[in-house]
Design a binder for these strands. Sequence first.
DNA 1: TCTGGGGTCCTAGGACCC
DNA 2: TCTGGGGTCCTAGGACCC
Length: 422
Amino acid sequence: MQNAIALLDCNNFYASCERVFDASVKRKPIVVLSNNDGCVIARSEEAKEIGVTMGAPLFKVESLLTDHDAEIYSSNYALYGDMSSRVMNLLHNFTPEVEIYSIDEAFLNLEPRKHSLDNLAHSIREKMYQWTGIPVSIGIAETKVLAKIANRRAKKDELREQGVLNLYRSSKTESILKETLVQDVWGIGYRSSLKLKASNILTAWQLRETDNRFIRRLLTVTGARIALELRGIKCLPLEQSSMKKHSITCSRSFGQIITNYELLKEATLYFLTRVCEKMRHHNLAANAVTVFISTDRFRPVPVPYSPSATYSATYPTDSNQELQEWTFSTLERIYDKDYEYRKAGIILSGLVPSEELTKRMFDDERFERQHKLMKAVDAINQKFGKDTVRFASVKTEGRWKMKQTRKSQSYTTNWNELLIVN
DNA sequence: TCTGGGGTCCTAGGACCC
DNA sequence: TCTGGGGTCCTAGGACCC
């Protein structure tokens, strides 16, 4: 017995979040920008209609947007994160098995159920809009990959009003797979689509019908699993308890080119401060830090250079000071003075719950002092604002400082920015 | 020093996703 | 002038061991 899987996806999520709190933009084109206000990462339907493409750099579409009286927002992750958890929490009213896949998507196991799949999906959709103001689309099928395809079609023009497409044991599946190009299948990216095309495999249906050993050789197990999922064979299970983080990253493109080693050190130290905060907020510790730096990918002169290196330690730590030592020694390994750098970042990995540090704390007095110190610093910064207390070496005004000139209010997470209704 | 297969562990990099 | 950031998974290849 194959259970029916649903994929629920919030329509134009970031744009919809902005719209919930600002009635004046109900019919206007809306776009939300990436960090640093660099490019477009979310668009309302109206913005799509005037021809704004996903990922377009702001400077290329700015005049188009102003001509159409569009609203432009910097990204407000506090708001989106909060709206997301409202949506996700409500899903448990409909089924116990929910996998939160991303900030705006969740897979649901729809069994067991009292009503028909279609009725259930429509009722989830209506309730979600009523409770949160966020419109959602739902695709239903035997597997995750097929549910993704159903969801995508549920958003298409001719079907958009309904917002639900049920392909579970449906005779429509074959024709829809024949209309779906391989590059539009979840898990098949640009590289894989080129390989498939070279073998004359152009549609999802052809991918499904090709001998699986061939696909495995061409695209490794990842591709083989996708092909099986297209046949309705579950290879990707619902993962409900995937709350454990494996890594934490902070990286930025710089406002200007950096060649100077000291400036690069400043930047990585700033990123390290951010990832350490996040790590301790989740009560985690890390035993490895990866440092990466990169030249400008849009101007690869003379040649692109983007080295990275990892420092792995025996014991995990959550102390800035210790991680700072690891970071600098790693940066030194990859830095080459002959290049101009445009971007850098830090990744913490080997994450373990910080209770597991207890043993070390008994052994190591210096470590225990640092651990307590960091906890105190976090508490103060939480209360009085970011970087109220910091290491003297951490510069907060750098060329990597994030640009956010069009941010909306933190309607749901900051008492001082609540929505006022007159 | 050479001969050989098999196994593990680690890391860098590729590919993909939202 | 201006082109995002944060993740996961898989594999190839090196180092090491028996």
